[in-house]
Design a protein around this nucleic acid. Structure first.
Lengths: 348, 348
DNA sequence: GATTAGCACTCACGGGGCAAGAGTGCTAAT
DNA sequence: ATTAGCACTCTTGCCCCGTGAGTGCTAATC
């Protein structure tokens, strides 16, 4: 699709989209000429609108109401009429400041990003924690809780921490556990769950028990990375007229429950630099038709990535969402790179 | 308040509550006599209802509609008409089985409990993780992520795991970090954050940095324990007629956002064995008027406790909620005791 | 004295009708 | 190519009113 409309058509389409996004009601030719100085009469606008409708940029809800953008119209708007929406520097500063004030902890960053994003866009924000497709063991620790129960804590190469409870077949001292973990740590370091499972099969007794649980934890970690998602701003989103009535609200809630949205979204996402936008029926999953998604991946490297995005009705503020999502992805990436990747000062 | 109604009044009040909870619509004398074999005419029921209304057990929404229980009426119902609602053994088995299938991990237990509870009661379930009012350090670990960045993982006496990122002032080897943690661990074991902060002041350089961050983490842990809450079942709850229209839904969502509900709820909770019930205006916080809360504390000891409960409109199934909450509190306590507390086999 | 049948009355609820308002499409004039 | 004018359409909000469920009261009955 190229930019294929006349200057005046561009202006009108742009105004229709903006007005409709703002008010939520179909916008008519008269209202448009009254509110903005277009220099032409409503009849002319009407003719142009007719053309835009014929070309599937606009749509008539019913015979005589105003116009509403089609998915195609939104797409054209996003592509050609939006310009490059970068976030004003003042807002960038505000956001950076908030991140500086929060604890040095990935979870806190995610929560903050979700809160900021939802607040700025008035819709549901989505943030997944940065995860690696392949998890390798970096280090684990065994801490005795009581005679036959120990806490297993493991850290993966990607820096994720996982804890689980280990039931022992017989009482074991903390010193024994420490010695065991010191020894095993050197043996299975950097292993994937499959390799550790194999090592467990080769071992017996306590070491086998421990290794098996580590393998399980690593595996569940890899699987879970496809289903964990944090969202915020449901309250704001449910105020949107699209969701205030029963059916729409229900649809949104189902999408958000248990990470159902991730399985709908993931197949269509590509790992790329910039923000990705899906408008209504552009979404592969039918569950997402009627929704707009603005999403970007972030991360410290190709290995460790997460997503940050906004989910709203098709009628959502794409410009603002894009600039916010883009900037937050950048902030999160910067923070992560500060943690995981050799930065400039480490290059030397 | 004693049981102060006649047998027939008891029967009628009970039926009104049950019918109203079921249908959500005010229940009239005629409908009651038609649906149930009361052995008396609707006029008699009407007279009794009038008496119940005079005594503030029932309420007239408007001049001529059916009756609706007052908060006082619900209270009487819960206190005297409910019997002892224990969960059928078959359901107990079902629930236990689900807990056996899930990972050995406190977070998984909490999520499962919330899901089961919300599903069974058709309302929002609330579960807080088990936390200790006072957190002492049990063990910490330093893991080098890159030259000047390390991951700090600490485990508290109550078994909570906390991770945060530590920025170093100069490059430090993993071996150095390991040695440092081995040494410091013995020094500050079982300390509270205040004591560790003091130790940090006495130290200098890297040890001081590490200790300070540990103190911070412990402190934030103690504070956070008052605000962390997991909830489930929003979708079901929002289908309730009380919440389907704008105002009610908004109110519920605000309550649930950012753990606002905990600050409303905590002041009125007591640490006791059994389920606590708050009906409408019985709630201390005005934000909770119009809501019903059924909640219990669970835990391995007096030190380590969390809450599990149900939040719904005043018109909620108290019987079912009570039995579910009571049983889930028991299950969670059992699981926790299995982890933390010396069990019977350790007594000898 | 408690219960019930009967009756007049009340009030929410839902559907039909109606006027207002916003918008369209077409035509003819500019 | 643009615009003024006009007839027409269709939603929206409102009022009105019939319906039905329910009440309170009274008088008759057990």
């Amino acid at each position: 699709m190229e930019q294929q409309l006349s200057g005046r058509q561009n202006t009108i389409l742009k105004l229709v989209v903006q007005e409709y996004v703002r008010t939520g009601r179909a916008v008519g030719s008269k209202a448009l000429t009254e509110r903005y100085q277009l220099g032409v009469s409503s009849a002319t606008v009407r003719n142009e609108m007719g053309e835009l409708e014929y070309r599937d940029y606009l749509h008539h809800p019913y015979t005589s109401a105003g116009r509403v953008p089609t998915d195609h119209g939104y797409r054209y708007y996003v592509e050609y009429l939006l310009g490059d929406p970068y976030l004003p520097v003042s807002e960038q500063m505000m956001i950076r400041r908030q991140f500086r004030q929060v604890e040095m902890q990935i979870e806190s960053w995610i929560k903050l990003a979700a809160a900021v994003l939802a607040d700025a866009c008035g819709n549901v924000s989505l943030v997944t924690p940065p995860r690696s497709r392949v998890e390798r063991l970096r280090h684990f620790e065994l801490i005795s809780l009581r005679e036959q129960v120990a806490l297993l804590i493991l850290v993966t190469q990607s820096g994720a921490v996982h804890e689980s409870i280990l039931h022992l077949t017989e009482p074991v001292e903390q010193s024994t556990l420490s010695a065991l973990s010191r020894q095993l740590n050197t043996e299975v370091r950097d292993f994937r769950h499959t390799q550790i499972a194999r090592a467990a099969d080769a071992a017996a007794g306590l070491p086998a028990l421990v290794l098996r649980q580590i393998a399980e934890a690593l595996q569940s970690r890899e699987q879970q990375s496809q289903s964990e998602i944090h969202h915020e701003g449901l309250d704001r989103a449910l105020q949107q007229p699209e969701f205030s009535r029963g059916a729409g609200a229900q649809h949104l809630l189902e999408l958000l429950r248990g990470g159902a949205i991730l399985s709908a979204l993931l197949p269509q996402l590509e790992l790329m630099e910039d923000v990705q936008i899906f408008i209504g029926s552009e979404n592969r999953s039918a569950d997402l038709h009627g929704f707009g998604v603005v999403i970007a991946s972030y991360g410290a490297s190709d290995e460790i990535t997460g997503y940050v995005g906004v989910l709203g009705p098709t009628r959502m503020p794409y410009g603002r969402s894009i600039s916010m999502v883009r900037y937050l992805a950048q902030v999160l990436s910067d923070l992560l790179r500060g943690v995981y990747q050799a930065g400039p000062e480490a290059v030397r």
